[in-house]
Computed example of a mutant assay.
Amino acid sequence: MPITRRRVFTVLAGAAAAIGAPSIWISNMKTYDGPVSDHFDGTRFFDPDGAPPKSLAEVLRWQFGTDRKRASWPDWVPNAHSDTPPPRVGGDKVRLSYVGHVTWLIQTRDLNILIDPVWSMRASPVSFAGPRRHNDPGIAFDALPKIDVVLVSHGHYDHLDIATLSKLAEKFSPRVITPLGNDVTMRDTDSAIKAEGFDWQDRVELGNGIAVTLVPTRHWSARGLFDRNKALWASFVLETPAGKLYIVCDSGYGEGKHFRRVAEKHGPLRLAILPIGAYEPRWFMKDQHMNPSDAVKALADCGAQEALAHHHGTFQLTDEAIDEPVNALADALKEAKIPPERFAALKPGQVVEI
């Protein structure tokens, strides 16, 4: 395929969505301004146990290299399932509905909580380029119950979807809990979004005995050319009556330190939600996205009783086939001698109750 200006634009828009790589999308949004800490130098956030993001040259090497092997995804995959959730779930039960990619609806103690909600057709800074959906959300937007709380893990376009957050603000006006700086991005775009920014290890009461703690994760953030790591990224530990849920929306594995520290500080964990997709080629992705083998190691490290897989099968962000993550997860579980029912990969619209 010839390298045209439009092709480069499309590639960079897609990279911005997939891994926060530099895009030609130049943002004039305000950025976080706060005190220096052990992971903020006064201008940018950093992970002392992480790795720096890839350079523009590496993005172009990945996209245009002669040795690239990018699998072809089906244009559209109709869902076999569709969920119409109840208005509320009371008592000590927790109901988890998989919407797709990294989006979940979690219902417990009469609270409705959305994780990284994306209902848009593209995960991109522009509407005409970048990764597009290959299946419908597992819950139609109009079928959502009243949303009380939204958790947004970081600023990449497949996680922080302003269009969806604006629709949620207009219809439900939920609290939006997010790492530092992403709240600035949201409010600067739409003042109706009730965004609240928090640091790593901050614990936030959500009501009805439910709380969430933001914890470090091996990742990074960007939405444009000049805002790399000017907003923080995090995973979540959600305290529920059925036990603690460890929700990892995006992470590399590294040496497993982040997962073992969560086990030490927040264990025991009832359930881990772990990413298994967007991992090829490994030379480019391994520092920021786990493959299924990494995810199985992360489950062992964090010590959760069970796990659910996500971050696969909706947006083609990287080079593996649409079904490769789920197949590779089955192989990794077999190799680790872990029963497949302990780490399940749902399809959009499927539900788990604990």
Rank of each mutant, 00 (worst) to 15 (best):
D49H: 10
K69A: 14
H39L: 10
L60F: 09
W62P: 07
L105K: 01
M29Y: 10
D41K: 12
R109P: 07
K93G: 08
L114F: 05
G90S: 09
A57T: 06
R61M: 12
Y32M: 07
P78N: 13
S120W: 04
R109V: 11
P117C: 01
V89R: 07
A57D: 10
L56W: 04
K54S: 05
G50H: 02
H39G: 04
S97T: 15
V118A: 03
W104M: 00
S120T: 14
K93N: 13
F45V: 10
N79M: 08
T43D: 14
S27D: 08
L60N: 00
N28A: 04
R61V: 13
V118G: 01
F46P: 03
S120Y: 05
N28P: 03
L56M: 12
G91W: 00
I115V: 15
S82C: 15
V77N: 04
P78Q: 10
F45K: 08
V59D: 00
D33H: 14
A71D: 09
P48F: 11
K93R: 14
Y32F: 14
T43Y: 10
R122A: 14
R68V: 13
G50D: 00
D41P: 06
R109Y: 02
V77L: 06
D47P: 04
G34M: 08
M121C: 11
R70Q: 09
M121S: 13
P78H: 12
W62H: 14
D38Q: 15
W76T: 12
W76Y: 15
D83F: 13
S72H: 12
V36C: 02
F64E: 09
F46A: 02
L60D: 01
R61N: 09
W25C: 06
D92H: 09
G50V: 09
R44L: 08
P86Q: 11
R70G: 05
D41Y: 03
P87K: 11
V94H: 02
K54W: 12
K69V: 14
R88G: 03
D41S: 09
F46T: 06
T31C: 07
M121T: 12
V77Y: 01
P78I: 06
W25K: 07
S27N: 07
R70N: 10
S55D: 08
V59I: 14
T66Q: 15
V118P: 01
H101K: 08
P48N: 09
R70T: 10
D38F: 08
T84G: 00
T43L: 13
D41V: 11
P117H: 02
I113Y: 00
N79L: 07
S82N: 10
S27G: 01
D33M: 08
P85L: 04
N28W: 04
R44F: 10
D110A: 04
Q63V: 01
L56P: 03
G91F: 01
G42D: 04
D38M: 12
W73F: 06
T103N: 12
R68M: 11
H81N: 13
N79F: 03
S82F: 09
V94R: 04
Q107R: 07
A71Q: 02
D41F: 12
I113C: 02
E58Y: 05
V77C: 10
R95E: 07
I113L: 07
V99C: 05
K93I: 11
H101L: 11
F64D: 13
D41L: 10
D83Y: 06
R122K: 15
